[in-house]
Amino acid sequence: MEEHAIMEEHMGADRAPSRVEVLSREGVRVVVMTGEFDIDHLGGLREALDPMAPEVSRYVLDVSGVTFTDSTALSLMLQPALTRPVILAGELPRHLKRLLELTGANRVFTMAPSVEQARMMAVPPHPRRA
């Protein structure tokens, strides 16, 4: 079964809107993140990264279009990693790469150069799910 949804939040004239597009198919939930994600603009991301989502074996986060991420958004990105693999796909924006390095979260995520490679790559099952 395939699921597709788009969630968008407008942040005002001085900031880019955040947009989350979700495509779930064959146990893989692809979440395309675009724009700025901070404590005030996480609604769509919170829904997309539901750590209890049934029948999701892995999350693929396309972060190549992210222009800003704060620690609250990073916390949401980490939640599903407690129970299943989370793969960051695409080129990491410089600010996100730095945030991952500073927090040590870069050791939690698997990295892939593209969404298609992330969908197909072999990743070990999460220890809590194995």
Rank of each mutant, 00 (worst) to 15 (best):
F68A: 11
D40P: 00
V22S: 01
V20I: 09
S71C: 11
G27S: 12
T110Y: 15
A122V: 15
A112I: 08
V123Q: 13
S64K: 04
R84C: 06
G12H: 09
A53T: 11
A118V: 01
E91H: 07
E2K: 09
S18A: 08
R98I: 06
S114T: 15
G90K: 04
R107E: 15
L23F: 03
S24R: 10
V28L: 03
D40A: 10
L23V: 08
L99K: 12
A118D: 10
E55I: 06
V115T: 07
P85E: 12
R128T: 13
L23C: 04
R107Q: 15
H4M: 11
G104S: 11
T83Y: 00
R15L: 13
S71G: 06
L99C: 12
G90N: 07
L61P: 11
V60L: 10
L78W: 03
R46C: 02
H41D: 09
H41K: 04
A122F: 09
A73W: 03
Q79T: 07
S64I: 07
A13R: 15
M120T: 15
A81F: 01
V60F: 07
R58L: 11
R25T: 10
R29W: 00
P127E: 06
E9N: 10
T83Q: 05
D62F: 00
T69N: 12
S75Q: 07
P125D: 13
E21S: 10
P85R: 04
T69S: 14
R19N: 03
K97W: 02
F37H: 09
P85D: 07
N106M: 04
S24V: 11
T67L: 11
P113I: 06
F37L: 08
V28Q: 06
A130E: 12
M1I: 13
G90V: 02
A5T: 11
M1G: 15
A122Q: 15
A105G: 13
R19I: 14
M7A: 13
R119M: 13
M11H: 15
T110Q: 12
R25A: 12
V30P: 01
N106I: 05
Q117H: 08
S114I: 04
P54V: 12
V60P: 08
P113C: 04
T34G: 05
F109D: 06
V28K: 04
G65V: 02
G65H: 09
L82E: 10
L100K: 05
H41L: 04
E116P: 05
M111N: 04
E101K: 10
L82W: 02
V108G: 08
M52I: 05
M121G: 08
R107V: 13
L61H: 03
